[in-house]
């Protein structure tokens, strides 16, 4: 071997930025979303307007926030089916407590606390008792939504007591960002939350011990145990993180809608999982990115929005999203096969 130690140490898997990008599923999904964006701007007068983009980004923010947590769970090789129900439960806890006059600053920690407890229960059942994640979280899907019904007697809640304005501002408000040479951009609050959370999650995945251990557990759980990683604690923490994301999205969504019913977030777990998978998370574990989760969610929302704008029946939405899931996974399969040969 002629190469020196330094060369060997600095030798990278990919030669340059372009080949690195080409190997990322998130990159291809971003390209697809960007492509759809350009096409739609040309085909529809309404799409590229300030107001429509405001709506699109806000709508996908809820799914994307939960997809961050879901991606973390999927990286460990698990799955969390209870996120839609946790979103409803968290929304109902904050809605009902504020309805009875609880101040905003107490109601928020209560809703987040309930979400964290649900995640803690899921995690303990999975990591310590050894029940498969699919089963535990399927059970929790049922339990959490039922608890939301018990809590509210299945009523619709739209009176949020003395602090109502704060809750509505949190979810429905926006901030103005003025840029030189451009119109002022209105950024919805949920999108701001999403941006902060994607930065934190992306950072944790790459730079923290916790992130490294998530990938190790998903890659080879036995190896993780043998090398002394606290596998059980990490698993509990990741389900708590996922539920927390769902709880945060729940609070924001109630604030935006200004009302909460127990059917909020029904079937949402499937959209969230779809967003994660389209964004490159591998359901068999060990692979996934925070950024991918967000572009996956964005692509789904752009599809939904475009069908509406182009006058195509929204019944077609599922077909498009389904095709994207299959194509994304198929694409990944072909690509890795090419790389291994």
């Amino acid at each position: 071997m002629a190469t020196s130690l330094e060369e060997s140490i600095s030798k990278r898997e990919h030669v340059n930025l372009l080949s690195w990008l080409m190997s990322r599923q998130a990159f291809w999904v971003s390209m697809a979303a960007l492509f759809a964006f350009v096409i739609l701007s040309l085909m529809s007068d309404v799409f590229a307007t300030q107001q429509n983009l405001f709506n699109v980004t806000r709508n996908f923010a809820f799914v994307a926030i939960i997809a961050l947590g879901m991606t973390a769970v999927i990286i460990t090789g698990g799955i969390d089916l209870s996120v839609g129900a946790v979103l409803a439960l968290s929304g109902m806890v904050i809605g009902m407590s504020m309805n009875t006059g609880t101040p905003f600053w107490i109601a928020v920690p209560m809703a987040l606390g309930v979400s964290l407890f649900v995640g803690f229960f899921n995690g303990v059942m999975i990591a310590y008792v050894g029940v498969p994640p699919f089963v535990v979280t399927l059970g929790m899907l049922s339990i959490a939504r039922s608890l939301a019904m018990v809590l509210s007697n299945n009523r619709m809640v739209y009176e949020f007591g003395p602090d109502q304005a704060q809750l509505l501002w949190l979810g429905g408000g926006f901030i103005d960002i003025s840029l030189p040479f451009l119109d002022t951009i209105k950024v919805p609050n949920p999108v701001l939350f999403l941006i902060v959370m994607v930065l934190i999650t992306g950072f944790a995945f790459r730079w923290s011990k916790w992130g490294r251990h998530l990938f190790a557990i998903g890659g080879n759980e036995r190896a993780a145990i043998l090398t002394g990683i606290p596998v059980r604690l990490v698993k509990v923490s990741v389900y708590m993180f996922c539920s927390l994301c769902a709880g945060i999205a729940g609070i924001l969504e109630v604030g935006w809608l200004g009302t909460i019913t127990t059917s909020l977030g029904q079937g949402m777990e499937l959209t969230v999982i779809a967003a994660s998978v389209i964004g490159g998370a591998n359901l068999s574990g060990g692979i996934g990115t925070a950024f991918g989760a967000v572009v996956g969610a964005a692509l789904i929302e752009v599809i939904r929005n475009s069908l509406t704008l182009l006058g195509i029946s929204t019944f077609w939405q599922g077909t498009f999203v389904g095709c994207f899931i299959i194509v994304a996974v198929l694409f990944d399969r072909l690509r890795t096969r090419g790389a291994n040969d």
Partner: peptide
């Protein structure tokens, strides 16, 4: 170990330091 206890999805260095990461 016989199966080496390696994580396929991580780099060689990450596997060497698995569970004893340098911070």
């Amino acid at each position: 170990y016989q199966d080496l206890a390696l994580c396929d999805n991580l780099t060689a260095a990450a596997n060497v330091y698995l569970g004893r990461e340098l911070m």
